[in-house]
Design a protein around this nucleic acid. Sequence first.
DNA 1: TTTAGCACTCGATCATCCGGAGTGCTAACA
DNA 2: TGTTAGCACTCCGGATGATCGAGTGCTAAA
Lengths: 341, 341
Amino acid sequence: MLSERQESILRAVVEEYISHAEPVGSRTVSKRDDVTVSAATVRNEMSDLEELGFLEQPHTSAGRIPSHLGYRYYVDHLMSPKQLERSDLLAVRRLFTSHMDALEQTIQQTAFILSKLTNYTSIILGPEVFENRLKHLQVIPLTERMAVAILVTDTGHVDQRRITVPEGVSLSSIEQMVNLLNSKLAGLPLHELKQRLYRELTDELSRHVENYEYLMAMIDQMLDLDQEGRIFTSGATNVLSQPEFRDVEKAKVLMELLEQSDTVARLFSSDKEGIQVRIGQENRLEAVNNCSIISATYTIDGRSLGTIGILGPTRMDYQKVISLLEVLTVDLSDHLRRLYR
Amino acid sequence: MLSERQESILRAVVEEYISHAEPVGSRTVSKRDDVTVSAATVRNEMSDLEELGFLEQPHTSAGRIPSHLGYRYYVDHLMSPKQLERSDLLAVRRLFTSHMDALEQTIQQTAFILSKLTNYTSIILGPEVFENRLKHLQVIPLTERMAVAILVTDTGHVDQRRITVPEGVSLSSIEQMVNLLNSKLAGLPLHELKQRLYRELTDELSRHVENYEYLMAMIDQMLDLDQEGRIFTSGATNVLSQPEFRDVEKAKVLMELLEQSDTVARLFSSDKEGIQVRIGQENRLEAVNNCSIISATYTIDGRSLGTIGILGPTRMDYQKVISLLEVLTVDLSDHLRRLYR
DNA sequence: TTTAGCACTCGATCATCCGGAGTGCTAACA
DNA sequence: TGTTAGCACTCCGGATGATCGAGTGCTAAA
């Protein structure tokens, strides 16, 4: 357990380093208002903190920087839940009172404002439509052999896919089938559709509809949803502003990672409720070893819909990002609920 | 007019500089197979070429690099229409024989392969649905006051938008209206819909449908298409590999530009048929003054659908990019035609 | 007209040299 | 005993200067 004095020194080092990105010396610390002892004492304490693993020295005769453990301790115990800047809060509120009627637009905008206010890269996963319920199914023929299947969920999400109409299947039989599917499947969660289809509807379909086997293949095609929620990033170029990525090579690794949506999804997806902070090597991926990821889930009616998060250097303004994410998840959830009633 | 010898020297300088990214000296040029004169002669000629504005010298006692004019001359007169690498051609062909049934997927993949093969950033605009014709209109109610309008075009493009149902408008009157709209508007190009609506349908609607004024507002909302085609980029991080962007600041300017979709659209949109090459300052935007943009339009049944292009440093492998774009636009147009019949 | 030779220029690289910031240790002090 | 002032030492970073090599421009010879 750290003494109160050690804690205030650790806090000082972390906060100074976060805002100035340079190793923090004993004099700098002792000059802070919340530290009353002299530089020499600070030196002794810093030496102890280094031994305990909370601080690191880039080289002898340089100041100290926080280790991953140091950041962790700071996030877990030392961070005061700083109030958001009024202007930031205002920006968030203004966003959600403005007219955003499309889901995609809402999320894109949220990502945008998040990256704008933090100067880090923001990433939003989802929303996961998988749990949504089928509202309506429709097939619109384009040509003899082509059609568009449209699937609307109770949340107003529209999923479309182009399907090939098997030979020998008539328009009227498709219509018949769609009607049947609508009456039997409406209200079910999307991930149950196929299951239900096979278990309960095969008999009925084979009785009512001609060319049953071909149709089944077509339905199968129709209900193959893309399970992966979409990924929205914003402010990817912000990494280029961070001094830790002044070296193009390092920046490149990170930017390339951001272009691979599956990796990003894996990195950010989080099942835990609430805000999650992963610092440095706590992320498994080596490329983000000197990055931190802060993520939160947004919900609708208690159902977790997706993840919203920030990627930045380990030297990140945790206080600000966390309080911003707290506000944003609540407001986003609210907004989505209002949108979907 | 340049002499044959001057041309071969200019070609040599451009090609050497393209592949090595360093000022080209007289010795290097005279060692090439297509230049038979000595280094000293080359020096004299290069001096002339500089005076004519085709070459530049970063500083005295450095080699020469092509000026924008030099690249332009090279592209217009000196480039031999080099055969594509067999492996590249194969990759393109493989892409289009693979199963891609969604429009968006097709385009995303095309962009991907383009950036992969060139190591530059690829950008695809469109497809422009504006000229497409209405196939089918559908409104699916979600709640009392909310609905999703779905608009399918003859090319199978699906456009959706969430609409608010005005108070006092019944479900049945909406249904009635949609039927009327479908029968009257189907087959029309999207950009004529509104016009036609106001000119010919107001009377009929007011006769057949209750609460006519509210409905009109709603229809208006429905037919407000996003005119801007979507933008797909791929390989944005490739700029970070180019030696001209070793400096993070320069890279940042470009990457930020790539994040602004409207600027990108403006930069790439091209009405001219065929392949267009814009070198350096020929682009109006200052941020891309040392970049070149090569773009081409892809078509369907002769109708220009959208633009496909490459953004890279002025020192770009024009031959390769141009031949690649030639193949790709043809294949993409073919593929889309097959897709839409 | 072309080429060989030569002096000259200039950037890149490397070693060297401070200056400053910061530490660790010791001794004095409360 | 804990705290502080003082001091020698370390190390980084920027400035300076020497050297090297690539490349040019000019001149004179072929």
